[in-house]
Amino acid sequence: MMRLNLLLLLGVLLSALYLVNVQYQSRRLYSELDRAKSQALKLAAENERLQVEKRAQATSARVESLARSKLQMRAATPAVTSYVSYAGATSMPDRPASADGGRQP
C-alpha cells in the first residue's frame, strides 16, 4: 500500500509540474500573440499611410508641376511641334512590298 501511495504521489507531483510548465508556455505564447497582433496593427496603419502618400504623390497635377519645374518640360502645342519625314521613303514611292517584309538579302 505504501508503494502505491508513493507512486500516486509521484504521479501527482509530475502532473503538477507539467501543468505549471504548460501554463507558463501558454502565457508566454499568449503574450507573443498579443505583441504580434499589435505589430500587425502598426504595420497595417503604416501601410495605409503609405498608400495614401503614394496616391498623393501620383496625382496628375503633381506630376505635371514636377515635369514643369524640375525637367523644364512644357505642353505640346501645334506651335512647338516639329514634323519629321523620312527622306528615304520619298525616293522610291512606287516600289511594291516584298513577301519577306521588305528586307533585302
Results as ranks from 00 to 15, higher is better:
residue 72 Q to N: 13
residue 35 R to C: 08
residue 79 A to T: 12
residue 70 K to C: 06
residue 76 A to P: 03
residue 30 Y to F: 12
residue 84 V to G: 05
residue 39 Q to Y: 10
residue 34 D to A: 07
residue 84 V to M: 09
residue 80 V to K: 13
residue 69 S to W: 06
residue 75 A to V: 14
residue 80 V to A: 06
residue 83 Y to H: 15
residue 74 R to Q: 02
residue 68 R to G: 01
residue 51 Q to F: 05
residue 74 R to T: 06
residue 53 E to F: 15
residue 59 T to Q: 02
residue 51 Q to N: 02
residue 50 L to V: 06
residue 76 A to W: 12
residue 49 R to K: 15
residue 62 R to E: 00
residue 52 V to M: 00
residue 84 V to N: 04
residue 30 Y to A: 13
residue 80 V to W: 09
residue 61 A to Q: 12
residue 73 M to H: 07
residue 36 A to S: 06
residue 41 L to Y: 14
residue 64 E to K: 06
residue 48 E to N: 15
residue 55 R to F: 14
residue 65 S to T: 06
residue 74 R to C: 00
residue 48 E to L: 13
residue 63 V to A: 11
residue 50 L to G: 01
residue 51 Q to A: 07
residue 80 V to P: 01
residue 74 R to W: 03
residue 59 T to S: 10
residue 62 R to N: 03
residue 36 A to D: 10
residue 59 T to D: 03
residue 34 D to G: 03
residue 37 K to I: 15
residue 55 R to I: 08
residue 60 S to F: 02
residue 51 Q to G: 01
residue 41 L to Q: 12
residue 77 T to M: 02
residue 62 R to H: 04
residue 63 V to K: 06
residue 75 A to R: 09
residue 49 R to V: 09
residue 47 N to I: 02
residue 50 L to K: 11
residue 60 S to A: 00
residue 58 A to Q: 07
residue 56 A to E: 15
